[in-house]
């Protein structure tokens, strides 16, 4: 943060104040979305009376476990790709040495980091999976029918920080500092976009599963997986 006031530039802006902004918007936006959804759900009288913790947890567990549902078993390739994609997508930025150093620099906290070469490979995996997801949208008939322009934007939004991060790390295409600035800005855009786009499925997942899991388990006595 201080760096920006000492030496104002796009680089220090993206490295300091924008990070703060992105995290604030992400966290507040996320809480706001969850809070308003829970409040709206009260208006529908058929949600809260039927919620059931046991079946909520069963449902979430089944769908977070690879091949835990009949749906995933019927789509083994897609399941494998999405699981690898999501794990790398979340784990890489959280356990990247470079990112942890930044946390340490500002807040004096640090945690276990991924070996650099592994993190590098995981980044490539995210990029490859994004390409696969785009190809799937382009060439699989039923998904092509469902896809609109915004679906490609969402994938690109997610893939961009990884592409730029990879390029910056290997000092390809553009000068390191410029690429790093683009990397930071794209990451911040992604964080800000999460509460306001369909990327919000990262937390809405738990709410919809709670409802459907409870309905299926506690009321209908059947499986939702």
């Amino acid at each position: 943060m201080e760096q920006f006031f000492l030496d104002p530039s796009i680089y220090t802006l993206a490295r300091g104040p924008l990070v703060w902004l992105a995290f604030l918007v992400f966290l507040i936006g996320m809480f706001y979305r969850v809070f308003t959804t829970l409040k709206m759900a009260k208006k529908e009288k058929v949600i809260y009376p039927y919620l059931n913790l046991k079946y909520t947890l069963r449902s979430i567990f089944r769908w977070l476990m690879p091949f835990g549902s009949i749906s995933m078993r019927k789509h083994p390739w897609f399941t494998a790709v999405t699981f690898v994609f999501h794990i790398c997508l979340i784990a890489t930025p959280l356990f990247l040495t470079g990112h942890i150093e930044l946390w340490h620099e500002s807040w004096r906290i640090s945690w276990w980091a991924l070996p650099v070469s592994l993190a590098d490979a995981m980044t490539v995996i995210v990029i490859l999976c994004s390409i696969l997801l785009i190809f799937r949208r382009l060439y699989q008939q039923d998904i092509k029918f469902l896809t609109s322009f915004s679906d490609y934007i969402v994938i690109i939004l997610v893939a961009l920080p990884f592409i730029t991060g990879f390029l910056a790390h290997h000092e390809l295409l553009l000068e390191y500092k410029i690429m790093l600035t683009i990397h930071m800005i794209s990451g911040e855009i992604m964080l800000i976009a999460i509460p306001f786009t369909r990327l919000s499925h990262m937390f809405m997942f738990f709410l919809t599963r709670a409802h459907t899991g409870s309905e299926f388990g506690a009321v209908r006595h059947s499986r939702d997986y």
């Binding site: 208006k43 529908e44 008939q141």
Partner: peptide, 29 residues
């Protein structure tokens, strides 16, 4: 209220539901 909003906004158009439907299968995909 909430259900409509969340269901519409959370669908990722992944197509996992496609082959579960007998109408889809019955009409030559």
């Amino acid at each position: 209220s909430a259900r409509l909003k969340v269901f519409v906004e959370t669908c990722m158009r992944c197509g996992m539901c496609t082959t579960s439907c007998h109408h889809y299968l019955g009409h030559n995909n």
